[in-house]
C-alpha cells in the first residue's frame, strides 16, 4: 500500500462547482509527489481533505495506512503539514511555537527540547529562536513552519505552496531541506505548487490538476517527453511586424501563447526547422531581435492537456479554492 492512496475523491461546496471532482492518486513511501495546478484548480482543497481538516463529499483516501474519514486522529498523528501561508502567532517566539505545538502532540521535557533545538538548528533559526515571529522575514517564517510540521517525526509531510512569496535564495534552501527529508529520512512528501521549476526540481512524480480533475500524471521527464517537440520564441526588431512574424511562423508549427512582444510556436519537426524559419523571415524582411529555442517544460505539458498556459492561468478562480 502507498503512503497516500486516493480513490474517487470529491469535494463539493455549497453554491459552487466541484472543487475536487473524483481524483485518484497513489504516492509511494519516501516519494516526493508534486501536485501542480493554477489557483482554484483544487490543490488546497485536496490537501485539506488529506490532512483531515475538511471531510470529503465522496470517495476514499488513506494516508500512512489510515482512513482520512474514519481514522482522522491517527492520520493527524502520522502527518505533518505546512499549509498555505505560514500560520504563526506574531506575538510568540519561534521557541514558544515549538513548545506549544510539541506539548499538544504530547511531547515533553528533555525530548521536546532536544527535538526542538535540533530542528531549529536544521532550519537555521537557532539565533532567532527567542525573537518574536512578528519580526521574522517571509523565508524565516516558512522555515519555522517546516520545523513545526516535522516536530513529531511525521511519516508523511504535506507542503501547500511552501515557497510562495519567497526570494530565490530562501526557495532553494527550502528545496534542499525537503529533498534531504525524503532522501535521508524516508519522509513521503505531498507538495502542491504553482511553480513549474519547483515541481521539476523536487518531485519524483507530478500530477497536474485543473478544474478539480487530474489531467495527467507521471515523472517530470515522462511528462515532458509526452510533449516531445521543442518550441521557438522570436521577438522581431520592429514590434509593428509582429503580425507578419506570426503568419510566417505558422507554417512551421503550432502557435503558442503570446508574451506581448514576441511570437512562439511548437515546431513541427524540431530544431531542424530553425534554419528554415530564419531564412523565411529574412526573405520577408523581418529582423530578429531575439530568438529563443526551448525544450519542452511542464508548462508545455499543461498547455498540451488543457489548451492554456499554467503560468498566470486561473488567477480569477480563487473562489473555488
Amino acid at each position: 500500500m502507498g503512503a497516500i492512496e486516493v480513490r474517487g475523491l470529491v469535494r463539493e461546496f455549497k453554491k459552487g462547482p466541484r472543487a475536487v471532482d473524483g481524483i485518484d492518486i497513489t504516492v509511494a513511501e519516501g516519494e516526493i509527489y508534486g501536485f501542480l495546478g493554477p489557483n482554484g484548480a483544487g490543490k488546497s482543497t485536496t490537501v485539506l481533505m488529506l490532512t483531515t481538516l475538511l471531510p470529503p463529499t465522496a470517495g476514499t483516501a488513506t494516508v500512512a495506512g489510515f482512513d482520512i474519514v474514519k481514522q482522522g486522529a491517527e492520520v493527524r498523528g502520522a502527518i505533518g503539514a505546512a499549509l498555505q501561508e505560514a500560520a504563526l502567532d506574531k506575538f510568540l517566539t519561534g521557541r514558544e511555537h515549538i513548545k506549544l505545538q510539541g506539548s499538544l502532540h504530547g511531547m515533553k521535557g528533555a525530548e521536546l527540547k532536544r527535538r526542538g533545538d535540533d530542528l531549529l538548528e536544521r532550519v537555521g533559526l537557532t539565533d532567532a529562536a527567542d525573537r518574536k515571529v512578528g519580526g521574522y522575514s517571509g523565508g524565516m517564517k516558512r522555515r519555522l513552519d517546516l520545523a513545526l510540521a516535522l516536530l513529531h517525526n511525521p511519516r508523511v509531510l504535506f507542503l501547500d505552496e511552501p515557497t510562495t512569496g519567497l526570494d530565490p535564495q530562501s526557495r532553494t534552501a527550502l528545496w534542499d531541506e525537503v529533498a534531504r527529508l525524503a532522501r535521508e529520512d524516508g519522509v513521503t512528501v505531498f507538495l502542491t505548487t504553482q511553480y513549474l521549476e519547483e515541481a521539476d526540481a523536487l518531485a519524483n512524480r507530478v500530477g497536474i490538476i485543473d478544474h478539480g480533475h487530474i489531467v495527467i500524471e507521471g515523472t517530470p521527464a515522462e511528462l515532458k517527453a509526452s510533449v516531445g517537440r521543442s518550441s521557438v520564441e522570436i521577438e522581431p526588431h520592429d514590434a509593428a511586424r509582429l503580425g507578419d512574424l506570426e503568419r510566417t511562423l505558422a507554417a512551421f508549427g503550432t502557435p503558442l501563447t503570446m508574451r506581448g512582444t514576441s511570437a512562439s510556436i511548437r515546431l513541427n519537426e524540431g530544431v531542424s526547422d530553425v534554419a528554415a524559419i530564419v531564412r523565411a523571415l529574412d526573405a520577408e524582411g523581418i529582423g530578429i531581435h531575439q530568438l529563443r529555442l526551448r525544450e519542452p517544460t511542464l508548462d508545455d505539458v499543461f498547455l498540451e492537456q488543457t489548451g492554456r498556459s499554467l503560468e498566470g492561468s486561473g488567477d480569477d478562480e480563487d473562489a473555488a479554492e
Binding site: L53, L88, H105
Partner: peptide, 16 residues
C-alpha cells in the same frame, strides 16, 4: 485572528 491566519488549522492538526 487565529482562524483568519490559519493558526487554528495548525492547532487542529495536533491532538488538541
Amino acid at each position: 485572528t487565529d482562524i483568519d491566519s490559519g493558526f487554528l488549522n495548525r492547532l487542529s492538526l495536533t491532538p488538541m
